[in-house]
Simulated assay, not measured.
Amino acid sequence: MSLHFSVLASGSTGNATYVETDNHSFLVDAGFSGKQMEALFQKIDRKPENLDGILVTHEHSDHIKGVGILARKYKLPIYANEKTWKAMDNLIGVIPVDQKFTFDMETVKTFGSLDIESFGVSHDAAEPMFYVFRNGSKKLVVITDTGYVSDRMKGTISNADVFIFESNHDVQMLRMGKYPWSIKRRILSDVGHVSNEDAAIAMSEVIGDATKRIYLAHLSLDNNMKDLARMSVAQTLEARGMGIGHQFDLFDTDPKIPTPLTAV
């Protein structure tokens, strides 16, 4: 059974991930303008009008900026939990009732052979949650925007074939950077974002025999760099006995350029 994905774009300026099987396709978040989203789809030779829906993780603008625009233009279903619906209702414009669907946290929705499981994360939003995609034996996990990775989260996401995993910031860059202390404290908190090192520690506890690819996502524009994130994560994983390059591979994501459409 096929399961393909592309991280259309990821970073502090916006986030969107495309997932498809032979018969269904979904977008996780749409954190860019409608025109930008359409351009990202074009780069992977896909069309947003063919989507079966948009799965919303939480109401922050870098995840929902284009949700309403795409949904209205292409008559797409939107899936989110009730608290997220209430938080984003005034932010995405009027959505027809028949396009609004509730996807409760810690539940599974099935679309043909595709199972999509939602799970809660720790972030300063109404009720933030991310998604696990399963098609046959294949498992894809999307997890960003969390201040830490709990044992409960680890149990849900463990031994995925592919992880799209937050590696938001380098702690030293953040501490020495230009942000006001209030924002630094928020990012470093349990409801902020995981650092490179903390992400790697969490990864080391969920990587399994099935794991072949890890994509480092949601990198801060001001407090991280691709090379630094990859080096920091790799060092921590290797120190914990993880075989990068033969057991699994690390990949970058980009705030503007999609990753190639890839089979899980």
Rank of each mutant, 00 (worst) to 15 (best):
S118D: 01
I69Y: 15
S10Q: 04
F5R: 06
G14C: 11
N81D: 08
D222C: 08
T102F: 08
A80N: 01
G147M: 12
S118G: 03
F32G: 03
V233A: 04
I164E: 00
S25I: 00
R240T: 02
I183L: 15
E49G: 00
K100L: 06
S167D: 11
I92A: 13
A39S: 15
E238H: 08
T21G: 10
K73P: 06
A9Q: 13
V28N: 01
V171H: 05
K178C: 14
M242Y: 01
S232A: 10
A30K: 04
I164P: 01
G241W: 13
G136H: 11
A160Q: 11
M37W: 02
Q99F: 04
Q235C: 08
M231S: 07
D124G: 10
S204R: 00
N196Y: 14
D249R: 11
L55Q: 09
T107I: 03
N23R: 10
Y74H: 11
V121W: 05
W181G: 04
R185K: 13
T144G: 04
Y18D: 01
R213P: 01
Y179A: 15
D249P: 07
E166A: 09
N50P: 11
V206I: 15
K256Y: 13
A16G: 06
A263I: 06
T236L: 00
T107F: 00
I157C: 03
E82I: 12
D62Y: 12
D124V: 15
K212S: 14
L76F: 09
E117F: 07
R186K: 11
R72W: 15
S118K: 01
A239H: 08
A202P: 12
D198L: 14
I244W: 03
A160P: 13
T102N: 07
N23Y: 05
K86S: 15
D62E: 09
L8M: 05
V162K: 01
R46V: 06
K65M: 13
D98R: 03
T13S: 14
I201N: 06
I187T: 02
L237S: 14
F32R: 09
G112W: 04
F101G: 07
A199F: 04
I201S: 05
G208D: 14
M173F: 06
E59F: 03
A239D: 12
S232Y: 03
I214A: 05
H60Y: 14
L70Q: 03
M225A: 15
S12P: 01
P260L: 07
I244A: 03
M203D: 04
D252C: 07
Q36T: 15
E20Q: 06
A39N: 12
R186D: 10
G120W: 05
P180E: 11
A202N: 10
V142H: 06
N23A: 05
E59A: 11
I157L: 02
T84H: 12
S204H: 09
F119C: 15
R230M: 04
D227V: 02
N224L: 08
L221R: 07
V171I: 13
L27G: 07
F26L: 02
M242D: 09
H123C: 05
V132I: 06
G120F: 02
F111H: 15
R46N: 00
A217C: 04
V121Q: 00
